[in-house]
Write a protein that binds this DNA or RNA. Structure first.
Lengths: 340, 340
DNA sequence: TTTCAACACGAAAACGTTTTCGGCGATATA
DNA sequence: TATATCGCCGAAAACGTTTTCGTGTTGAAA
C-alpha cells in the first residue's frame, strides 16, 4: 500500500526545494530543462497528483457545487441532477447532493454545514416545509456571505437570486385548454396543497383556462391532496360521485393512480375519461396507456441552473454587477394515449 | 456582504493570539473563563464557523464519500443514493454523486480526479463498459492507495473489497419458479447481454428453475436486448411468433414495455400472459396493471453500503485487519396484478 | 526574600500547495 | 577590473485550522 506522494517527499528524494518541484511540474521556464525532466519523470513514476484539498484551501475555490433537493426518488429531481452533473463535469466541477426530505431543518443544517468553504455555490429547490413556513433566513445568510445560489422549480419571490422555473401557470393553462379543445367540459383537477408554489400556480392556470372558455370553476372538482401516502380513496370518491370526462393531475403519480382507479371502476381511458399529467417521468412513458403529460424537461433545467451558477462563480472574480436573472424553461405537451 | 470571519480576524479584533481564540472556542481549560466568554461571544456575534477545507487538510479527512453510479435516472440507483445519503448524514458525512453514464472513461476520470484527497472513500456500481472491458486498474489503484471502496449490485470477483449484492440468481430462480407454480410452462426471458454481471446471473437462475422442473430451456425464448433505445420490435416479434404464457423480464422497463405491447397485440395481462419484472421501481407500482416484481430494496443496499464504508473509515485509524465482506441483501417477490 | 507551582497565554509547526521575491554564480558588457 | 544581466534555484508567506510546547506572571509556601 503506497500512500500518496507529496511535493515535499519528491523534493527530499531529489534533494531540491519544494518550490523547484512545484515549478518543474508546472513547466515553469524558471527551472532548467534538466531539472524539470528529472522531476517530472520522478513524479510520473510515483504517480504524483496534487492534493485537491490543499489547492482548495489555497485558491479558496473547491470546484464543487451542491444541489439540495427535497427527494431523489422523484424522477423529475433525478433528471435535474443529471443535467447539473453533466454541465458541472464539463466545467471541472463536482456535485454534492443533499436531500432535505421535505424538511426545513434538514435544509438548514445542510446549508449551514456546507457554507463554510466546503463548496462554491448552491443549486436548490425548496422543501415543502420551508415553503409553508416561509422562513428563508438560511438562504439569505448564505447569499450575504457572498455564496451564489440558484433556485429552481420550487422558488420564492422573497429571495433575490438567479432562478430557473417553468411557467407553471401557463403550462397548466395549456393542458386544460387541450382537454377543452377535445370537447371535454367537465375537467377535474387533482393538485397539492397551496403552499407548494408550483401546485398553486398550476391550479391558477387550470382555473384561468376554464374561465376563458366560459366554463364555471366547480370547486368540488378540485381535489387538494394533503396526505401523499393515502390519497387513493379521495380520487376514487371523485371518480365515483362526480360527472367528469377529464382529469388534469399536477404530477404523474396522481395521474397514474387515477388511471389505475379508473380501470378498477371500469371507466375506460381515454374513451370515457381523458387524463393529463405533469412531469416528464418514466411512469407516464411506460404506463399503459401512455400518459399525455406536460414535460418539464428536468435535464434542461439542471443544465441551465448549473450554467448560471458556474457563470456567476467564474465571473465573480471581476466583482461584476449583481443582476439576478430568472430563466423560464419552456414546457411541452407530450401527447400519448391517455387522452382522446 | 460580510465575508466569512476567520480565527485570525477574531484574534486581531480581540488582540489575542490565534491559539487563544481556537482554544477558547473549543472550551479549553487552558484559557481563563473570562477570555473564553469574550471570544465566544464575539464569535457568535460574527457567526464564526470553522472552515471545513482547512480542517480537512489538517485532519486528512474530508468527511465526504463519493458514490459512482452508471446513471441516476434509473430508479433503483436513485433509491440507493437515498439510502447512502441517510446513513452518511447521520454520521456527519456528505455525499458526492458521480455519474459514469455507463462509460469506462468517465468512471476512470472521476475516480482519478477524486482520489487526491477530495474524498474519504468510494461506493460504486460498475458501468457496463467497465464490465465488458474487464479493466479494473483504476479501482485497484485507488484501493492500493489505502482508500476504501465498497461495490454494490454490479460487482466483480476480480477486485477484493467490501461488496453489497443481492442473490440475483436465486431471485431469478424464485421468480421463474413462481410462474411455473402457477402452471405456466412456456416462460420467456427478456434479459440484457451477458457481460452485465447481474444479467448473466439472472439468466442462470431462470435456466436453473426450468431445469429443476424438468422443462427444457428453449434458447429462442431468451431475448437478449443489446440496444436499450430500440428493443420494442424484438419483444413484439417474440410475443407474436412464440407460444408463451409468461415472461420474466430482468428489469422494469422491459416488463412495462412488454405489457404495453401485449396490450397493443390484444393479449390480455395476466389472463393470457403473466409478467414478472425485476427492481422495485415506481413503474411497476403505478403501472396498470401493477407489475409483480422482484424487489431489490435499493434503499437497504445503499444504507448497508454506507455503513460498511463508514465503519471501515472510522476503524482504519487502528489499522485493523483487512477482512473484506460481501453482504447479500435479501430480495422479495412483490405480488401485484400482472401475474395470475 | 527566594523558590516553585499554577495559571494564562503565545509562538510555531503541521497539513500540501502556489507564488513572489531575493540570492548567488556565471557570463556579458563597459 | 568593475558592473550589469541572466539563468537557476530556495526561502518564505499564504490559505485556516489544531495542538504541542514554551514562557512570563502571579501567588503561595518555605
Amino acid at each position: 500500500m503506497k500512500r500518496k506522494v507529496t511535493l515535499k517527499q519528491i523534493a527530499k528524494e531529489l534533494d531540491v526545494s519544494i518550490s523547484t518541484v512545484s515549478k518543474s511540474l508546472r513547466n515553469s521556464l524558471e527551472i532548467s530543462e534538466d531539472t524539470r525532466q528529472k522531476v517530472q519523470a520522478f513524479a510520473k513514476l510515483y504517480n504524483y497528483k496534487p492534493n485537491n484539498i490543499a489547492l482548495s484551501l489555497k485558491n479558496k475555490k473547491t470546484k464543487t457545487i451542491c444541489i439540495i433537493i427535497p427527494e431523489i426518488i422523484h424522477h423529475f429531481f433525478a433528471t435535474v441532477i443529471s443535467g447539473v452533473e453533466h454541465i458541472a463535469n464539463e466545467n471541472g466541477y463536482n456535485v454534492l447532493v443533499c436531500l432535505s426530505d421535505e424538511s426545513f431543518d434538514k435544509e438548514v443544517i445542510n446549508m449551514e454545514m456546507l457554507a463554510n468553504g466546503s463548496i462554491d455555490g448552491f443549486i436548490m429547490s425548496l422543501s415543502k416545509e420551508t415553503q409553508s413556513k416561509k422562513d428563508f433566513h438560511h438562504i439569505v445568510e448564505v447569499i450575504n456571505q457572498g455564496m451564489p445560489v440558484v433556485m429552481f422549480d420550487r422558488v420564492t419571490n422573497d429571495i433575490l437570486c438567479d432562478k430557473i422555473i417553468i411557467d407553471d401557470e401557463h403550462a397548466a393553462y395549456n393542458a386544460t385548454q387541450y382537454l377543452i379543445d377535445k370537447g371535454l367540459k367537465n375537467v377535474a383537477l387533482i393538485t397539492t396543497i397551496d403552499y407548494v408554489s408550483v401546485g398553486k400556480l398550476r391550479t391558477d392556470g387550470y382555473k384561468k383556462a376554464l374561465k376563458n372558455n366560459d366554463l364555471i370553476v366547480d370547486e368540488s372538482l378540485i381535489l387538494k391532496i394533503e396526505d401523499i401516502d393515502n390519497f387513493e380513496p379521495q380520487i376514487e370518491e371523485l371518480l365515483k360521485t362526480k360527472k367528469i370526462n377529464a382529469v388534469f393531475a399536477v404530477n404523474e403519480i396522481f395521474a397514474a393512480t387515477t388511471i389505475k382507479l379508473a380501470h378498477k371502476l371500469n371507466i375506460k381511458v381515454p374513451e370515457q375519461l381523458s387524463i393529463i399529467g405533469f412531469t416528464d417521468g418514466i411512469i407516464s412513458k411506460y404506463s399503459t396507456p401512455g400518459i399525455t403529460t406536460v414535460s418539464q424537461n428536468g435535464v434542461k433545467m439542471g443544465e441551465k441552473a448549473a450554467k448560471m451558477l458556474i457563470e456567476r462563480l467564474e465571473s465573480e472574480e471581476n466583482e461584476e454587477e449583481e443582476h439576478y436573472r430568472t430563466e423560464v424553461i419552456e414546457t411541452e405537451l407530450v401527447e400519448r394515449d391517455s387522452t382522446l
